[in-house]
Amino acid sequence: MDRVPIIKIGKYLLATIQTDVQDNVAVALQEDLAARIIAARARLVLLDISALQIVDSFIGRMIADISGIAKLLDAEVIVVGMQPAVAITLVELGLTLSGVRTALNVESALAMAGIRDQN
């Protein structure tokens, strides 16, 4: 089974979903992220979904759950780069992911979180 790569950059974690994911890959991402948040003492997780061509109710719930789990672990998740067609479809499906923070791209996510790019 493929796993979504999670990399640590400075104080935050970046998880990039590359392509169409199978349900169990999404579930594994939840577990992996929870473990990495603790291990890295991360306060911020960027979940980059810009390559995702669809988000259905299952993936939508997974995103909401990841955000909720992170909150309990004192970290914040910012969902980055949702495509317009995906966003419209998700809204029509009835999912608005209220309570989940979002950003257009990694740069603005870092600005939102008050982190300057540490190059």
């Binding site: 061509q53 669809i54 109710s57 479809t89 499906l93």
Partner: peptide
């Protein structure tokens, strides 16, 4: 259109 593709693929997935 890309939006229509996205809608039908999402529906199929559900």
């Amino acid at each position: 259109s890309l939006l229509d593709q996205t809608k039908i693929v999402t529906a199929a997935s559900e």
